[in-house]
Design a protein around this nucleic acid. Structure first.
Length: 268
DNA sequence: GTTGCGTCCTGGACGC
DNA sequence: TGCGTCCAGGACGCAA
């Protein structure tokens, strides 16, 4: 399930692969989530950026600068070696030099859009997305204010993308474990918000350093698995002893999301 | 405006 | 071995 570290890993591989190439052909699945892919035809790639979990491919186009926006959802994969006619391929783009870029997505939770550059207001979450967690715009005070305004569970707020961008289920569990905060807490003080701020940055930075977390579907552009899954302290370890205190980690569903936490280190 | 639940979607795991 | 059921979760729609 691609979160910020996985998407950033893909972005870093994709940028040199797509640089200055012109899209001359494309096709998409009938699912409306993907039908926008051909709107990139005619564009020359100017760069590959990322915002939260969204990949932003800049395009120099005759009708003005555009952006190809790709969200990988749960099982989305991008790759030059993805056969456009292969199973679960929802879209592909062909380049003037003859190569292709395929988008495969088994569960179809991803989505593709093409918009005028920088115009994200029609894209729901991306139009309201919060600060990049590894940038200076994400501060302990800003996180505290974002949490303080809300009465939802702290983990639900993190997953909402409006207080901080790019955090998904895995890294939310990991960051809350590191900060010692119960995932269902509805109030977080300034001190604990600062600890959570540091934890979010740390787990995401480590995730990027390790090339992302592969639990099942995630693969880089070159088809490799990430290495971060061996470093997880909390997510997916329910029933096992906490690495900090030895207490058995618990699992429950909060707001529809499977959640693992340590009842001793993360008291309610 | 906020919160929380249901839905989409499919392969794998599991039980019988 | 084969079948049915459950589970995973990001984003979005909708009701309260």
């Amino acid at each position: 399930m691609p979160e910020l570290p996985e998407v950033e890993t893909i972005r870093r591989q994709l940028a040199p692969l797509l640089a200055e190439r012109t899209i001359v052909d494309a096709a998409a699945d009938a699912n409306p989530k993907f039908t926008a892919a051909p709107a990139a035809i005619g564009g020359t790639v100017t760069g590959v950026d990322r915002r939260g979990k969204y990949l932003l491919v800049g395009l120099d186009h005759a009708d003005g600068p555009r952006e190809l926006v790709v969200h990988l959802g749960m099982t989305g994969q991008l790759g030059a070696d993805i056969d456009p006619g292969g199973p679960h391929v929802r879209a592909w783009w062909g380049f003037a030099d003859g190569g292709t870029l395929g988008y495969r997505d088994v569960r179809q939770f991803g989505r593709i859009a093409v918009v005028p550059a920088g115009r994200y207001e029609t894209l729901g979450t991306l139009g309201r997305i919060g600060p990049e967690p590894l940038s200076d715009s994400f501060t302990p005070a800003g996180l505290w204010e974002g949490l303080h305004r809300r009465r939802a569970r702290v983990k639900t707020v993190l997953l909402g993308q409006q207080v901080v961008a790019g955090v998904g289920n895995i890294y939310a569990d990991e960051a809350l474990w590191r900060a010692g905060i119960h995932p269902a807490a509805r109030r977080v003080g300034r001190e604990r918000a600062a600890a959570l701020h540091a934890a979010i940055r740390a787990v995401l930075a480590e995730g990027i350093e390790n090339g992302g977390t592969t639990l099942r579907d995630y693969r880089t552009v070159t088809g490799e698995a990430g290495r971060n899954q061996t470093r997880l302290d909390c997510y997916g370890r329910a029933g096992e002893p906490c690495r900090r205190c030895g207490t058995t980690l618990r699992h429950a569903v909060f707001d529809g999301r499977g959640t693992t936490w340590c009842p001793a280190c993360q008291p309610r």
